[in-house]
Design a protein around this nucleic acid. Structure first.
Length: 562
RNA sequence: UGGGGCGUCGUCAAGCGGUAAGACACAGGGUUUUGAUCCCUGCAUUCAGAGGUUCGAAUCCUCUCGCCCCAGCCA
């Protein structure tokens, strides 16, 4: 199980050590703190798994906390989506927490800071603040408002709160050190006026706390012991600690940073994903080509595969670009075990078995899983007219091609050995039908005379199969690094990332399959019924299946070599 | 050229002074009614580089090089 072979990493080591030293009385409390301003993606899954796994591993708990301190960007739909995604991934979080629930206390902490002379109301404009901040190589200089009296600061802050000022007129700043080589310590803004209604607090507030002020205090209020975040916050840690050191808080959590995930052939940033959606390069946030959790779910990814992937990639502080192949490998591993096998033909080629009785229909038994008998069997029907895959026939096949060709014999999976006797073409010379003979002695697929047939192909009975549309996906970008040579990643989109096939034929047993339920179309890959297309369309429309991932294909690899 | 971080196989990643795990990928081979699965085998004399300490260094010290992050009233 994943809990057993999950590898230990530096964060787990730190926590273990803390427990041994009885730090926090041995408690472990983590949190996953998304801002509800977009949808979750596989990168978030890494953080979710890390936080929940650490909590579970050490008998602690992990809070889902919405970091909702910027009402200009946050929406209830995201809150809902995030909760359902975390749930789908397989984690229990009880009632979610919200930074906005702490707005009163955060305000009081700010007042406390002012009273201690550690914060002041600054009346510089945004541009001025930027100027005064200095640059990476030059120190900043003190704001002229830095030494306002505590009384004046208290009064001004109170009036900010009451809405007496417009956005940008005043800010509340921590009084730290404008000379600091760490820009985050140059009197960072901790409260700003923002006259926007909040999804949860409505119009109660017109001042909102900034991330640096909100996060550490929210952590402290929730009794978080280990606050895990990504590397770009490493520079903020001194500020995180500074704020908690000034105030009387329930505890002082330890911030630990780790590297965020990158995967080749895709992008993992809300900003870029948003652009793909808004410019209609993809069809919404749940487009199956996207690495969003909703997109992956619709594509057919299982939570188990994603969790496994997150365990396998580990946690470190090194910048990385993980091979998409690893994700797919985890997916196949999981799907191979859980997906029942069925047959479907994507690009049908009609076959007439000339020596098969005209109106006979036979029933054949097929295993639902070659290695797992517990998954049972199903009945397939067979008749004179069937469909096979166009790719499984070559008029002039090379020596290593084990499938159909003129005069060649192949096995129809679970059915009969057939031999191609004639090829029917249309006026343009395209092959439109194969005439074959079958060997009645080979029912089930074995020849009594023991003759070996190298190729086994899938097929579907033309008389009772289901018509379907199938969407095949390829990587979203052409280059493994979509921003290679500093080009706009949009330029790198793979124009062939989606292929929709409209005349597919599937075996009858797929008639009532549920959306998202994984099946393997033998020899073609893993598929699932699309949850969106199938629910919104009328009964007229064919069902739509998504290919989740192909099977490993060494034949394609061999072909590619020559 | 300020501050913070990182550099171990093509890609992730163990390793914490005692002589380079594992996974994916790749390459061979076996089994197979999915060219799938499964099973074998191979795949870093070397840890960004150079010095040094040590009986012994990927691990300690010094210097050099490379990459990433930070100048939102975003998180």
């Amino acid at each position: 199980m994943e809990t057993e072979d999950r590898k230990t990493h530096f964060i787990e080591s730190i926590i273990s050590e803390d427990i041994q030293n009885n730090k926090n009385n041995g408690a472990v409390v983590t949190r996953f703190p998304p801002e509800p301003n977009g949808y979750l993606h596989i990168g978030h899954a890494k953080s979710i798994c890390l936080n929940f796994n650490m909590a579970n591993r050490f008998n602690g708990r992990c809070n889902l906390r919405f970091d909702d301190s910027n009402p200009a960007k946050e929406k209830q739909v995201y809150i809902d989506s995030i909760q359902s995604a975390v749930h789908w991934l397989g984690f229990e979080f009880g009632t979610p927490f919200y930074a906005s629930d702490y707005f009163d206390r955060l305000h009081d902490f700010a007042v406390e800071l002012i009273k201690k002379g550690k914060a002041y109301v600054c009346s510089l404009s945004a541009d001025q603040i930027r100027e005064y901040r200095g640059t990476l190589t030059e120190p900043g200089k003190d704001s002229p408002y830095r030494n306002r009296s505590i009384e004046e600061n208290l009064d001004l802050f109170d009036r900010m709160k009451k809405g007496e000022f417009e956005e940008g007129e005043h800010t509340l700043r921590a009084k730290i050190d404008m000379q600091s080589p760490n820009i985050n310590m140059r009197d960072p803004i901790i409260y700003r006026v923002k006259k926007a209604p909040h999804p949860r607090t409505g119009d109660k507030w017109c001042i909102y706390p900034m991330y640096d002020f909100t996060h550490c205090l929210s952590d402290a209020l929730e009794g978080i012991t280990h606050s895990l975040c990504s590397l770009e916050f490493e520079d903020h840690r001194p500020l995180y600690d500074w704020i908690l050191d000034q105030l009387d808080t329930p505890c002082h959590p330890q911030q630990i940073e780790f590297a965020r995930m990158n995967i080749n052939y895709t992008v993992l940033s809300k900003r870029k994903l948003q652009r793909l959606v808004e410019e209609n390069h993809v069809d919404g946030w749940d487009d199956p080509r996207l690495p969003t959790l909703e997109g992956m779910r619709r594509r057919g990814y299982t939570p188990e595969a994603i969790r496994r992937f997150c365990d396998i990639i580990g946690v470190s502080k090194k910048d990385s670009r993980i091979d998409m192949g690893l994700l797919e490998s985890c997916l196949r591993d999981d799907l191979n075990e859980r997906a029942p096998r069925v047959m479907g033909v994507l690009k049908p080629l009609k076959i007439t078995i000339e020596n098969y009785p005209d109106d006979l229909t036979e029933e054949l038994t097929a295993k639902n899983h070659p290695q797992n008998d517990d998954m049972g069997t199903r009945t397939l029907t067979f008749s004179k007219n069937i469909y096979v895959e166009q790719d499984d026939f070559m008029e002039d096949p090379p020596k290593k091609f084990f499938r159909l060709g003129p005069g060649r014999e192949v096995r129809l999976r679970y059915a009969y050995l057939i031999t191609c006797t004639d090829v029917v073409k249309d006026e343009t010379g395209r092959v439109i039908e194969l005439i074959c003979t079958y060997d009645p002695q080979t029912k089930g697929g074995n020849a009594p005379d023991g003759r070996k047939v190298k190729g086994t192909i899938h097929w579907v009975n033309a008389n009772d199969c289901i018509d379907a549309n199938v969407r095949l996906y390829d990587r979203l970008f052409k280059d493994e690094n979509p921003e290679k040579d500093k080009q706009d990643f949009i330029e790198n989109l793979n124009p062939e990332s989606l292929e929709e096939l409209e005349n597919c034929k599937l075996e009858k047993s797929l008639e009532n399959i549920l959306p998202e339920k994984a099946v393997q179309f033998e020899r073609l890959g893993y598929f699932c019924l699309d949850s969106k297309a199938s629910s919104k369309t009328g009964s007229e429309q064919n069902p739509v299946f998504n290919r989740t991932v192909t099977l490993r294909d060494t034949w394609a690899k061999m072909k590619g070599r020559h």
